[in-house]
Amino acid sequence: MVFPKNINKKKKHSTAKEIGGKKLFLMTLPFLIATFIFSYVPLFGWSFAFFDYKAGHKLLDTNFVGLKYFLVPFSNPILRDDIVRVLRNTLVMSFLGMATSILPMIFAIFLGEISSKRYRKAVQTLTTIPHFISWVLVYSVVWSLFSINDGLVNNVLLKFGLIETPIAFLGTSKNVWITQWAYGQWKNLGWNAILYISALTSIDTELYEAAEIDGAGRFSKMLYITVPGLLPTFFVLLMLSIGNLLNNGMEQYYIFQTAMNKEYIEVLDLYVYNQGIQGNNISYATAVGMTKSIISLILLFTANWFSKLVRGDSIF
């Protein structure tokens, strides 16, 4: 008699759990629906790439054109030049970022060499501020410093007679890649270094003591203990940046874009925006964006696979 009763009790308990589980699901449902609407539903928009989609028309009323918009850059010389130019800009900016992604690590190592704790803290705090400023404000700051009419730099140069006429720093197509990269460094170098600064503290201090006993100097300790201690962090970030090779965002470039520098500043995301929303070539822009998304996903998984191969650990 005791045995079935027990089973009965257990069953009752599990149904209570089941009801609880359904309740939890129902309470979370609004968030799941939001996720579906905001992240999954837009994926259906990829179908525009296969139709001659015009804004305001129903998709079914438009002509199915298959891969036309994916192939058109190969046959249309204007679009081909566009794609080549935009890809060049995207890759140059990404590679500039990757090539200099060692800078935050160097920043952290050298900052760690400063013995005054207060100085170190002050530098760390103040150099992080630009990270929290929007790109529009960076633009305003740049304008205040480099504008042709009333920029600080031109004012100073004129005042000391170093130049006769103000220099048009902003209204030029020269050095776009370098200047855009420099704005990014100004904004994010201090911030990116924080990760390494925290990784510094996790290096075993015994290593330093042992090296000191062995007669290692300051620089050899940096080179043989600190640098290897930070490399894993560097590697993970580098792999992530490979996954983001084609995604350099568009806010910065949208804001700094002018008729003058468009040739060099238009990256993939910006191109998709200019074509799709400004130019109303919705199908073509979707095809470009879709191709980009898929390549990015492949890059991310390749980087992850590579990371597993090299370090035996995945990056995400």
């Binding site: 939890l24 699901f25 799941l32 996720t35 837009p42 259906f44 928009g45 525009f48 995301d269 964006g289």
Partner: peptide
Amino acid sequence: EFWGRKFWYRFIVATMYFSAGIIPVYV
């Protein structure tokens, strides 16, 4: 005890790795 916990968690986490892109989101 969340009903279909594993599935729904993945359903949410997966969205970190893809994006439909500017135009489909706009539409």
